[in-house]
């Protein structure tokens, strides 16, 4: 890795550690190797959103050309959000793409991702299925996102109804996550989900 990138990440790492957001436990960064090319990020779900109470883990890869190119970031924790792929965790956020500027830092990235959780942009989707649900049935979306937060990110809101439907599919021999994806995608209509899974 180019010296510049490593040096810069080293400084940024210190910046995040000292930041008040870390003090408030809102964001966190951990180093995964000595060469500063791979880091683990963590953000908490913003209050008053479906993600409240959840902790979301991020994979951060720093390219050799950092900070002139953005870090590559994706969600490790599974999440139900129009701008984040429910399959790969890939993120659609302008500052991680063409709106990146060399003056931005890991801290700005994490805070922007947190902001993205409170303000989705369904017109610029990463996950078309989620975006469609967000636009057509916001309550259904909220419930699904809260359920995913509970299951994958340690959120507090247990949804008995969802858990039951998943259990019924699991009993039929479907893998649990697959069952959850199918149900989430068909607005928790168990018949349509079953149809899709066995077609």
């Amino acid at each position: 890795m180019a010296n510049i990138a490593a040096q810069r990440i080293r400084r940024e790492f210190k910046e995040v550690i000292k930041s008040e957001e870390v003090a408030k436990c809102a964001i966190k960064v951990e180093l995964l190797n000595d060469s500063y090319t791979e880091l683990k990020g963590e953000i908490t779900g913003p209050p008053d959103t479906a993600y409240e109470g959840g902790t979301f883990v991020l994979e951060i890869k720093v390219p050799e050309t950092y900070p002139f190119n953005p870090p590559k970031v994706r969600f490790i924790t599974k999440i139900w959000h129009p701008n984040i792929s429910s399959v790969t965790g890939a993120i659609c956020l302008d500052i991680l793409k063409d709106q990146w500027a060399a003056a931005m830092t890991l801290r700005t990235v994490l805070l922007s991702l947190q902001a993205l959780l409170s303000a989705a942009e369904p017109d610029d989707p990463q996950d078309a299925v989620v975006a469609k649900q967000f636009k057509e049935n916001i309550e259904m979306f909220q419930m699904t996102a809260r359920h995913w937060t509970n299951v994958y990110a340690g959120g507090p809101h247990v949804n008995k109804e969802c858990d039951d439907k998943i259990k019924r599919l699991v009993d039929m021999g479907v893998e649990e996550h697959q069952a959850r994806v199918a149900l989430s995608s068909y607005n928790w209509d168990i018949e349509r989900a079953t149809e899709q899974l066995f077609s």
Partner: peptide, 10 residues
């Protein structure tokens, strides 16, 4: 020609 829906590729 815009990419497939949901394809937000930089």
């Amino acid at each position: 020609d815009v990419g497939a829906p949901g394809d937000c590729s930089y």
